[in-house]
């Protein structure tokens, strides 16, 4: 069980990649990419996890102590999510342009390159 979250992360990455490969719709491909990226969130957070530890946020009731989960990987996950959101937004905008120019969002029907 001690490796289980890591394998969940790897499975998410592969299943997302499989979704992109099998995709017949550009929007579906973008969502599959998000699934693949969420594998990295799971990996980062499980790297920083410690059993029976609390969140790395202190206050008047919780004095600073070291029995908390790793804040560094949580900050990295935040960066990861922001990057993922920006990539998704740009790709969806591209998908809209493709739909407008070619009248289809099926990657298999987009054969010719156009200037």
């Amino acid at each position: 069980m001690s490796y289980y979250p890591y394998f969940v992360a790897g499975w998410l990455l592969l299943v997302g990649a499989f979704g992109i490969v099998r995709s017949r719709n550009l929007v579906h491909a973008v969502v599959s990419l998000s699934v693949a990226q969420s594998g990295t969130y799971v990996l980062l957070l499980s790297v920083g996890y410690q059993r029976k530890a609390t969140a790395p946020v202190f206050g008047s009731t919780i004095k600073p102590n070291l029995k908390v989960v790793d804040p560094v990987v949580q900050a990295l996950t935040l960066t990861d999510i922001v990057v993922s959101a920006t990539v998704t937004a740009l790709l969806l905008a591209l998908a809209m342009q493709v739909a407008k120019r070619h009248g289809t969002v099926d990657p298999d029907q987009l054969t010719a390159l156009e200037g």
């Binding site: 069980m1 001690s2 490796y3 289980y4 979250p5 890591y6 499980s46 790297v47 920083g48 996890y49 410690q50 059993r51 790395p56 946020v57 202190f58 206050g59 600073p64 070291l66 908390v68 989960v69 790793d70 804040p71 560094v72 990987v73 949580q74 900050a75 935040l78």
Partner: peptide, 28 residues
């Protein structure tokens, strides 16, 4: 890799010390 949920987190220890030194309650 280190086992999931283990107590070995060297970056955690450094980051918490730095956060408390600058008076920040939310280490993230």
């Amino acid at each position: 890799m280190p086992l999931f949920g283990s107590i070995f987190h060297p970056y955690r220890d450094l980051a918490i010390h730095a956060a408390v030194a600058h008076g920040t309650a939310n280490a993230v």
